[in-house]
Design a protein around this nucleic acid. Structure first.
Lengths: 252, 252
DNA sequence: GGCCATCAAACTGCATGCAATTGAGGCGCT
DNA sequence: AGCGCCTCAATTGCATGCAGTTTGATGGCC
């Protein structure tokens, strides 16, 4: 069977799919930060399609939780609350335990080398931008999910992994990204060895540690984000005066 | 806070949301069987909107896995394979274990009575149509998920529950539906008592037994469904003659 | 009678146009 | 200067129109 990208997802249909994939990638690489505006016109123009299509793509992305749609308002990249981020990780842990449980001891030689190749790529990207490292780390998990041959599982793991990726860009410390490449290698090893509970434990602690490293601030924001983010800057503007907040065009 | 339906889902926006909800309900109540055609025109006409809107709604439903979209083809209600059905249940089990783990011992009095009221309703619907019973049983689980206050978890549990509901209509024996009302009561009791592992076990075995009761046929279909379904009828049509297959308008 | 080619109706893919809503800047008032 | 109102450009919500594809039905041919 030819490796035509899964025909069942509406995704791969046509232009809509292209836009979705592009935006998804831009979002998880933080080229589009949470809160960034996504006007239908601009998207359409940028991708050479009409608003109708851009709109449809935004709808799909919204269904995945990557963008927020408010009636009569410009769509924006989603800005999950800290609690939602934590919830996403909890769900992700359960789903990925399921993945490795199904995979333990069942990987073909080809699959193992594919995984190893991916981790090697992660290694090489170590000195590159954080954004790329994070994307690669996420894609490792998606690659794993793909090997289960369960379309539903793939979809959910992908979605939730992307969401986690998004939250990482919101809440994680600058360079905490992922020194977790070794943990990926350990997971592969355990999968090959075929010890279900061992690999489930590894995956659990791997994701848990990523989450804990990333989601460090228990209550970083209250009202909304902007005010708190700017709070440190609010004292001693230039001479005892409170700085008048400038334009504030959240995420250009 | 007013109980306005979650503002974040694009769903509740407007006409699209109405159509989605209507179709979802029709599908899980089997008014629309798997394979049923869903032409944009007809939907638009039926709901008094343009094709554009109907199309958008179909897109959302496809993202949830309830309908299948193939390029240039009429959309149809999804027809999950047996394996996909099994996978969906596996995922559902993990997700709902998470739900009850978060809920154990944390339900308010109001929530408990809401749950009891729902189960009572299930009881009353016992003599009604199977479809309604199944829908109510599914909604019990969604109600539970809602109480976690985790939008992401709600979304995933809802989706996967609807999918399972859909598969039930495909693979379950006529009246196997759910005598599982008692199990629902047991889960409520365990939740109130607050024993995490107890209630997780209950939920696990509850869903597992529903799945096993429903997904009985390990390999009921090979090529596609129609041929196998008709196989028993293929011998001795009316006089040693093979019956000429009539129109066969899958799901009117 | 059964099978294949041709054709018309049905349907989707997509762009565009128009009305309604938003929010941002400008103006006047205090 | 500060505050609020008002107007207007920007943007979304939705319907319609046209072009391309699929479906399935009719008619000719074996």
């Amino acid at each position: 069977m030819a490796p035509r990208s899964a025909s069942k997802t509406p995704e791969s249909s046509d232009k809509v799919g292209v836009i979705c994939r592009a935006l998804r990638r831009a979002i998880i690489e933080q080229a589009l930060a949470p809160g960034a505006k996504l006007p239908e016109d601009s998207l359409g123009e940028r991708f050479g399609v009409s608003r109708t299509i851009a709109r449809h793509a935004l709808g799909q992305l919204a269904a995945e939780g990557l963008v927020e749609l408010r009636r009569n308002r410009i769509a924006v990249v989603a800005t999950p609350s800290w609690q939602e981020a934590r919830d996403a990780f909890d769900i992700r842990i359960e789903l990925e335990r399921l993945v490795v449980r199904q995979l333990a001891g069942k990987l073909t030689k080809n699959q193992v080398s594919e995984l190893n190749a991916h981790v090697d790529a992660e290694d090489r990207a170590r000195d590159g931008s954080d954004a790329v490292s994070i994307r690669l780390a996420t894609e490792f998990h998606i690659l794993l999910a793909n090997m289960t041959n369960s379309p539903i599982l793939v979809r959910y793991v992908s979605e939730v992994a992307y969401r986690c990726c998004l939250t990482l860009s919101l809440y994680s410390r600058p360079h905490s990204s992922e020194c977790a490449i070794n943990e990926h290698r350990a997971i592969i090893a355990a999968l090959v060895k075929g010890d279900e509970s061992k690999v489930m434990g590894l995956m659990h602690s791997h994701l848990d540690s990523v989450a804990n490293r990333a989601l460090v601030a228990p209550a970083p924001q209250r009202g909304r984000d902007l005010l708190d983010i700017l709070a440190p800057y609010a004292e001693e503007g230039e001479g005892g005066r409170v700085v008048k907040m400038p334009k504030v065009v959240r995420a250009r």
